[in-house]
Design a protein around this nucleic acid. Structure first.
Lengths: 180, 180
DNA sequence: AGCAGGTGTTTTACTCGTAAAGGATTACCC
DNA sequence: GGGTAATCCTTTACGAGTAAAACACCTGCT
């Protein structure tokens, strides 16, 4: 075993699912370095659990997370965005954005306006209803997330955020570079 | 700003996407505590990036990640599993497992055997081809993951694994309890 | 002007996961 | 024992995302 959780040893009684899986793999393939699983497996599992939990407040408002991400992008940038910009901003494909925009405009949360110069592009903005919806959900959402994360003490959250930021920043940097 | 990354300050030049998003939100809603975003947003984004990168070695073998998870569950437990157990083990729905098993058996990677006692249940095991495939992919997969994670120094990986394990363990514990 | 090529968006065909209903079988309980 | 409930798995209908092609439009070159 490599260096693992260095934090106050007593608290790690948690025994998460991943550590069990890793133990099984090591029993079958004792020669393999399962270190990466303990990071990547946990990230994946955390993401799955958090999303499942997180979706609850959104679903009450009749939104999926990708839809909320799209509305949120419009809200937080504060100006109109084209479909392409929205796709980049929400890390999804253009086609997915097209479909979501169709639904959101039908629901009256988003408005589209054609560019006068370049008639290929459209500009999307939130309607008042859309803006109100986002502003209504966001505090609730953040409060909920805070309560979920409260299983970690604040310094732990800070460390975690820092490490993830470091990892993420570097991954985003060389994402295309590591094409094996 | 609350306590953030406490690690050697100089290294955090990374500026990941999430921090930009958080800054935008704070400009629009200065009163909101965006702390949770810095953790949850990063977990989600890391998961997305890692999976996208991770899938490369698997796709070469003609497997999706959920398929590999299923085969892996059979391999690491070392014994036969029922569809229900596989669903629990891979955190997916029973219906999804049914479909995947259908394909994997057609490809000759998995065999099914009916229970003699209870004729509702089936027992699945890897064929020799299936076992060989998993054993062939896994080292490659782990090596690849190692190289991806190498953007973090080993102590950082250890801390990250520890913190994620702590978070995950506690989330899994009270997952049903926080149904707001 | 006119056409080749590039860009921004949408459409199409397809895959995959899910929720809900369905079938089959077993277990409980009077 | 026999009917009702519980369990296990599969099927069905459907919603959502993707990749690739199609479409519409602009740009630059000759």
């Amino acid at each position: 075993m490599t260096a693992a959780n260095g934090r106050h040893a007593g608290a790690t009684r948690g025994e998460d699912t991943v550590s069990g899986v890793v133990r099984q793999w090591q029993a079958v393939h004792p020669d393999l370095d399962t270190g990466p699983m303990e990071v990547i497996g946990r990230i994946n599992r955390c993401a799955a659990l958090l999303q499942q939990a997180e979706d609850a407040p959104l679903r009450r408002a009749g939104l999926s997370r990708p839809e909320f991400d799209l509305l949120g992008a419009l809200r937080r940038t504060g100006h109109e965005l084209t479909p392409g910009e929205l796709a980049r901003e929400t890390f999804s494909s253009g086609a997915a954005v097209t479909k979501r925009l169709k639904q959101l405009t039908e629901r009256g949360l988003v408005e589209r306006r054609g560019d006068t110069r370049d008639r290929r592009v459209a500009h999307l903005r939130l309607t008042e209803a859309g803006r109100d919806l986002v502003d209504g959900i966001l505090p609730e959402q953040l409060a909920y997330e805070t309560s979920v994360l409260a299983v970690l003490d604040p310094p732990g959250q800070g460390e975690l955020a820092g490490l993830l930021g470091e990892l993420l920043g570097r991954l985003e940097g060389r994402l295309g570079a590591l094409r094996t």
